[in-house]
């Protein structure tokens, strides 16, 4: 007779936005360090996007506590084996990296460019952490559906990557920057992430077996299969394959990936809590 924690919409949004923030940041840092000069737009979009998102994450986490000042109690301790404790610290640390990288992404000198790239190389780890630790946090609870596959972190990381990259491509599209080479590359990286996410999801379901029933059958199943697997992953991949020369279709595909990322967090949290 387990109890669920009552982590509802605020936490769904936090998991979703935290995934995008982490994914956008590490994509930006990879583009910044290993891409060409023309991928600069990708890097800037990713860095700058991650900042408001991680700020929103902080607000959501604090608001969910009910009494905002109690957030400070988290800062009394640092428990390395506790995803919630270390996560609270990393949200703050990631915020700092996100801020510095965003500011430096407007630099015009080669020296600050080099500095930004180095900072990005360190920040990349915090980005990966932010995108995945929420899954590890669920894995180390007593709920069989959340914990038995031990792949929730890997799944959330893949989803953070696909949604972060989708968000970057959407920004490039909306700001009219989709003509550059960076757009094609970020779309390509996004496709890799989506294919990987589908693979992780399949292994996740196979490992869970009967513990996956909250997801695969029952009230939330149509949303899971239709909203995440169908509309959120397979349809965008097909759209990209068929119409990757048509930018509007590619942008639509990015939008669907974002919707799928939200559905993933929603069904994972709410299917055993409602």
């Amino acid at each position: 007779m387990l109890k669920t924690p009552g982590w509802e919409m605020m936490i769904v949004w936090y998991f979703f936005l935290g995934g995008i923030a982490g994914g956008a940041y590490f994509t930006a840092a990879i583009a910044d360090n290993f891409g060409g000069a023309r991928d600069r737009q990708v890097a800037r979009a990713g860095y700058v996007l991650s900042l408001p998102l991680v700020m929103a994450c902080g607000v959501l986490l604090i608001a969910d506590l009910g009494v905002p000042t109690r957030f400070l109690n988290m800062l009394r301790v640092l428990k390395f084996w506790d995803p919630m404790s270390i996560g609270a610290w990393v949200v703050g640390a990631f915020g700092m990296f996100s801020f510095v990288s965003s500011v430096l992404s407007f630099s015009t000198s080669a020296r600050t460019d080099a500095l930004r790239r180095k900072i990005g190389l360190v920040g990349i780890f915090f980005g990966f952490f932010l995108a995945s630790y929420t899954g590890v946090l669920l894995s180390s609870s007593a709920q069989p559906f959340w914990s038995e596959a031990r792949l929730m972190g890997a799944l959330f990381l893949a989803s953070g990557a696909s949604t972060g990259m989708a968000a970057i491509s959407l920004i490039l599209f909306l700001t009219g920057a989709s003509a550059g080479e960076g757009w094609g590359k970020v779309k390509k990286a996004d496709r890799y992430s989506m294919v990987f996410e589908l693979c992780v999801l399949a292994i996740f379901l196979a490992l869970l077996g009967s513990a996956a029933t909250p997801l695969t059958s029952g009230h939330f199943a149509p949303l899971f299969w239709g909203g995440l697997v169908g509309v959120g992953l397979i349809v965008p991949l097909l759209l990209d394959l068929v119409g990757h020369r048509v930018k509007t279709l590619a942008a639509l595909s990015a939008l669907l990936v974002l919707a799928g990322g939200f559905v993933l967090r929603y069904v994972v949290l709410m299917s055993i809590q409602s």
Binding site: F26, A31, I124, K188, A189, S193
Partner: peptide, 10 residues
């Protein structure tokens, strides 16, 4: 995921 992005962006 990082390797995928690396391949796409290199």
């Amino acid at each position: 995921v990082g390797l995928g992005a690396l391949l796409a962006f290199r």
